[in-house]
Simulated scan of single mutants.
Amino acid sequence: MAWIVLVISGVLEAVWATALGRSEGFSKLGPSVVFGVAILASMAGLAYAMRTLPIGTAYAVWVGIGASLTVTWAMATGDETVSLLKIALIVGLIGCVIGLKLAH
């Protein structure tokens, strides 16, 4: 159960990071509200998962999921340029996250 909550929390990290960028310094209400709700839920899920998972592994997996999804979303929406190097690095990051899960 902790792993499922951790993955969902990692997805929510990508949501709050994207909303933070779109809030324009918290000057836009909609993205600012999404940011607030998503960061609270993401942190609560991370805290829950850390009750049973090692802190280093849980945090690294959470950040890896959030970072890879944030960059992937930005490339998919045209906010960031797509390059083979970026794609390779994201694949490498995902591979490292999977490795941490398997090493647990």
Rank of each mutant, 00 (worst) to 15 (best):
A2Y: 10
I4A: 15
I4N: 12
V5R: 02
L6H: 11
L6C: 05
L6S: 06
L6N: 10
V7L: 15
V7M: 15
V7W: 07
I8M: 01
S9E: 09
S9I: 07
S9Y: 03
G10L: 07
G10D: 10
V11D: 04
V11W: 04
L12E: 02
L12T: 01
A14V: 02
W16R: 00
T18V: 12
A19C: 03
L20D: 03
L20E: 06
S23P: 03
G25D: 05
G25F: 03
F26S: 00
S27M: 09
K28Q: 15
K28G: 10
L29P: 00
L29I: 11
G30P: 00
G30F: 14
S32A: 13
V34S: 02
V34R: 00
F35N: 04
F35E: 09
G36Q: 10
G36S: 15
A38C: 13
I39E: 10
L40A: 14
L40E: 01
L40N: 00
S42P: 03
M43S: 08
M43D: 01
A44K: 02
G45N: 08
G45E: 07
L46K: 08
A47T: 13
A47W: 02
A49G: 04
A49T: 12
M50H: 05
R51A: 11
R51C: 00
R51I: 06
T52R: 08
P54S: 14
P54V: 03
I55V: 14
I55D: 09
G56E: 07
G56R: 05
T57S: 06
A58P: 02
A60K: 08
A60R: 04
V61R: 02
W62D: 07
V63T: 14
V63M: 00
I65Y: 05
G66K: 04
G66H: 06
G66I: 04
A67K: 03
A67R: 10
L69M: 15
T72V: 11
T72I: 14
W73T: 10
A76R: 09
A76G: 05
G78N: 14
G78F: 11
G78C: 15
D79W: 13
D79C: 12
D79L: 07
E80P: 05
E80R: 13
E80F: 09
E80Q: 13
V82Y: 12
S83Q: 06
S83K: 09
L84C: 02
L84D: 01
L85C: 02
K86F: 01
K86I: 03
K86M: 04
K86P: 03
K86G: 09
K86Q: 02
I87L: 14
A88V: 11
L89G: 08
L89T: 10
I90Q: 07
I90C: 11
I90V: 14
V91R: 08
G92S: 08
G92K: 12
L93G: 07
I94Q: 06
G95P: 10
G95Q: 03
V97C: 14
V97N: 12
L100I: 09
L100F: 07
L102R: 06
A103Q: 06
H104F: 10
H104M: 15
